[in-house]
Amino acid sequence: MVSQFGSVGYTIMGKTADLTVVQKIIIDTLHKEGKPQTFIAKEAGCSQSAVSKHVNRKLSGRKKCGRKRCTTNRENRSLMRIVKQNPLKNLRELHKEWTEVGVKASRATTHRRVKEFGYSCRIPLVKPLLNHRQHQRCLTWAKEKKNWTVAQWSKVLFSDESKFCILFGNQGPRVWRKGGEAHSPSCLKSSVKFPQSVMIWGAMSSAGVGPLCFLKTKVTAPVYQEILEHFMLPSADQLFEDADFIFQQDLAAAHTAKSTKSWLNDHGVGVLDWPANSPDLNPIGNLWGIVKRNMRNKRPKNVDELKATVKETWASIPPQQCHKLITSMPRPIEAVIKAKGAPTNIYMYSK
């Protein structure tokens, strides 16, 4: 049957077919005009039940019918409170605590509800533990440095230590294999319990990077002063020449020892005040991450090859990259102020 709107109604196996876009427009138009459903069905070329379902679905806001949910909105909100109170709980613990209050739901349902809230299970980031006093100290420092210019930050020689392993991180090649080949020798990746590693001290400024120091022993105050003598001062001469500079270091015990302070004063080195446990603020931390990412496809076989690879990769860092990191200093400072002194996610790197 053809209506005045030019639509055709039809049935398939005695069952009304899905409405076309034109039919839906006709139904909506005539329904707004107050026409009865029998008249609308005749004009749209469909059954009256199809008209009724379309009108009722639109009024109720439902797009489709489906199985009734086994949990109520109130029960779902209680699960959300459980997740918010302790986000470190695993799915089994969440399900147990939720069902202990009388909610009848499976673990799969619990998982679906948590995902509906927008949560995903991820490995938590590791950040330094800061107490309230350290939060306030970091916030105060960030507010003091908020208006520093790029020219001021370019006068700072940033320093830090980082550990490099022959097998570091979870990066590396993947393997194509068939079912049952998981333990095949050609599909295995070798691992060692205690991989060989080196600890490195380095420094950088807006002008580039300085020479690396490979640490052989624990860094005590005397050892650190040797590092300052043979690596920090040459880095400053290389990057600043005769210009004044400010030295940045964290608050490790060897750095804040009285003998170290005396050494710095005797050599006329000004030290930048620095908040405790705040690696997110140090741009050299991001530079360590860049070096490690650039080394992912390299496979040193021993410590000597590892040192050579680190040296080569470090030396290949262009001054433009260092300058870019220095010009980004306002970003972590703004993030610290926004977080009220708490750890931020601006500099993401692996120590």
Score class of each variant (00 low, 15 high):
residue 220 T to Q: 01
residue 271 V to Y: 02
residue 181 E to R: 08
residue 201 W to H: 06
residue 281 L to M: 06
residue 268 G to H: 08
residue 275 P to Y: 13
residue 217 T to W: 08
residue 197 S to M: 14
residue 211 P to W: 07
residue 302 N to K: 05
residue 221 A to P: 12
residue 179 G to C: 09
residue 246 I to A: 10
residue 283 P to G: 04
residue 280 D to Y: 14
residue 225 Q to L: 11
residue 207 A to F: 01
residue 301 K to P: 01
residue 190 S to D: 08
residue 204 M to G: 01
residue 223 V to H: 07
residue 282 N to S: 03
residue 196 Q to T: 02
residue 277 N to L: 05
residue 208 G to R: 02
residue 207 A to S: 08
residue 249 Q to R: 05
residue 301 K to W: 13
residue 211 P to G: 02
residue 264 L to G: 09
residue 303 V to L: 09
residue 230 H to D: 13
residue 211 P to H: 10
residue 287 L to M: 10
residue 235 S to G: 05
residue 287 L to Q: 02
residue 213 C to D: 05
residue 205 S to H: 03
residue 208 G to L: 06
residue 264 L to S: 08
residue 284 I to E: 08
residue 297 N to I: 14
residue 242 D to Y: 00
residue 269 V to S: 01
residue 269 V to P: 00
residue 262 S to W: 04
residue 238 Q to D: 13
residue 300 P to D: 11
residue 280 D to G: 14
residue 190 S to G: 10
residue 185 P to S: 06
residue 266 D to V: 15
residue 235 S to T: 06
residue 214 F to T: 00
residue 216 K to Q: 02
residue 233 L to V: 01
residue 191 S to P: 03
residue 301 K to N: 06
residue 213 C to T: 09
residue 201 W to S: 14
residue 189 K to E: 13
residue 295 M to R: 13
residue 183 H to Y: 10
residue 294 N to Y: 05
residue 199 M to Y: 04
residue 214 F to L: 03
residue 275 P to E: 03
residue 199 M to L: 03
residue 269 V to E: 00
residue 269 V to M: 02
residue 183 H to I: 15
residue 244 D to Y: 00
residue 275 P to F: 15
residue 256 T to M: 03
residue 193 K to C: 13
residue 286 N to H: 15
residue 194 F to C: 13
residue 253 A to F: 09
residue 193 K to M: 06
residue 297 N to A: 01
residue 265 N to F: 07
residue 209 V to K: 01
residue 249 Q to V: 08
residue 196 Q to S: 11
residue 220 T to S: 03
residue 222 P to T: 01
residue 188 L to V: 15
residue 243 A to S: 07
residue 252 A to E: 12
residue 192 V to D: 04
residue 205 S to W: 10
residue 262 S to H: 12
residue 272 L to N: 14
residue 237 D to V: 01
residue 263 W to V: 07
residue 226 E to T: 10
residue 238 Q to C: 02
residue 268 G to N: 13
residue 280 D to T: 05
residue 244 D to L: 03
residue 291 V to T: 03
residue 196 Q to N: 10
residue 178 K to Q: 09
residue 184 S to F: 04
residue 279 P to M: 07
residue 186 S to P: 10
residue 204 M to T: 02
residue 208 G to I: 09
residue 194 F to R: 11
residue 283 P to H: 04
residue 252 A to C: 13
residue 275 P to C: 15
residue 192 V to M: 04
residue 177 R to N: 14
residue 233 L to K: 00
residue 283 P to E: 09
residue 261 K to I: 12
residue 251 L to H: 11
residue 191 S to M: 06
residue 209 V to Q: 03
residue 260 T to H: 07
residue 234 P to S: 00
residue 297 N to M: 14
residue 232 M to C: 11
residue 226 E to L: 05
residue 240 F to H: 04
residue 205 S to R: 00
residue 227 I to L: 00
residue 181 E to I: 06
residue 184 S to D: 08
residue 285 G to Q: 11
residue 233 L to Y: 00
residue 262 S to Q: 14
residue 184 S to Y: 08
residue 193 K to S: 08
residue 220 T to D: 02
residue 285 G to R: 10
residue 178 K to A: 11
residue 216 K to V: 15
residue 265 N to G: 12
residue 234 P to L: 00
